[in-house]
Computed example of a mutant assay.
Amino acid sequence: MSAAAHAVLPGRGGVFGALADLLWRRPGVLLFVMLLPPVLWLGVIYLGSLFALLAQSFFSIDEFSGLIRHELTLKTYGELFRPSNLDIILRSVIMAAVVTLAAAVVAFPIAYYAARYARGKWRVLFYLGAMLPLWSSYLVKVYAWKLILAKEGILNWAFAQLHLTWLLDLVLAIPVIGGNSLSVSYIGTFLVFLYVWLPFMILPTQAALERVPVSLIEASSDLGAAPRQTFRTVLLPLALPGMVAGSIFTFSLTLGDYIIPQIVGSSRLFIGQAVYAQQGTAGNIPLAAAFTVVPIVIMGFYLWGARRMGAFDAL
């Protein structure tokens, strides 16, 4: 093959010419050269920092001096099982799960309409509407929702105009999830999470629904299946990998976020806020590192389950 290559394209002189000939004759070397910089970046910057963080979680804080004791111990992980820390973990997981389920319920009809009926300019408008929230600043969106959900916000004004203030007060009176206003309640935190991460659920679900042959739906109807049966036995199983793929984003992003609960919601901490507080205010870096390991472990099991459901094929 080398002789044929020489016959078709003679070698070029100089160092750069020889290097170009080498890369042309050996595609594997070219691939290695192209992948080396990103692999080094991933290995050194990302994985290196991740392992450094993991190592920090096996240290502990001296109770008297407040200094880090660089001795391997599981004491810091034991602190995660304190009731206050378990409450933070449980709160974060429940919020992530609820946001993910709500995003799936809201996203499915939108994605189904886009996959089955949107054509031409309507299809363009769908993608524009789904992607537009991702183009604006994350902080701007969160602070905008802070104003919308406030007592003097447009949402309260709309309820007042519809004479439904009593209904809003009834919802805010619900223990745990309620509060003085939507902007300082778990309900408000949930609404903002749902809005911000919803596009990550819509797009994979729409892509999965587009791959469902129309003939299957028609065959189901021809065989006498009711629309509910067609949805349960045909559409939902085939769209499920796309929904699970979207849930990877909604669940993981909600689980680790600290900005939304910091701006909208009550004073009770989520995992991201706990990491920020322990690393910054308290100066307890080992406990902050142990907290960060929690979503890594949770997402590890989550991704394992998602892979078994074929979610990676829908990404």
Rank of each mutant, 00 (worst) to 15 (best):
S2D: 04
A5D: 09
V8H: 14
P10H: 01
G13A: 05
G13R: 01
G14N: 08
G14C: 02
V15G: 02
A18Y: 02
A20E: 03
R26E: 15
P27T: 10
G28R: 09
F32E: 10
L36D: 00
G43P: 12
G43I: 07
V44M: 08
I45M: 10
L47I: 12
A55I: 14
F58S: 03
F59I: 03
I61C: 00
E63H: 10
I68F: 04
F81W: 04
R82G: 14
N85R: 13
I88A: 03
A103L: 00
R116E: 01
R116S: 02
A118N: 02
A130H: 11
Y143V: 00
E152F: 11
G153P: 00
L155T: 01
L155Q: 06
L155K: 04
W157M: 03
L167K: 11
L168T: 01
L170I: 08
L170H: 08
I174V: 13
I177Y: 05
L194C: 11
Y195N: 12
V196A: 08
L198R: 09
S221G: 12
D222W: 06
G224R: 06
T230R: 14
T230D: 02
F231Q: 08
L236G: 02
P237W: 13
L240K: 11
M243K: 09
V244E: 07
F249A: 12
P261S: 06
P261M: 00
P261L: 02
Q262F: 15
S267P: 03
S267D: 13
R268P: 02
Q273C: 09
V275F: 05
A277F: 15
A277D: 15
A277H: 14
A289F: 11
V293P: 10
I296M: 15
I298N: 09
L303G: 07
R308E: 12
D313A: 15
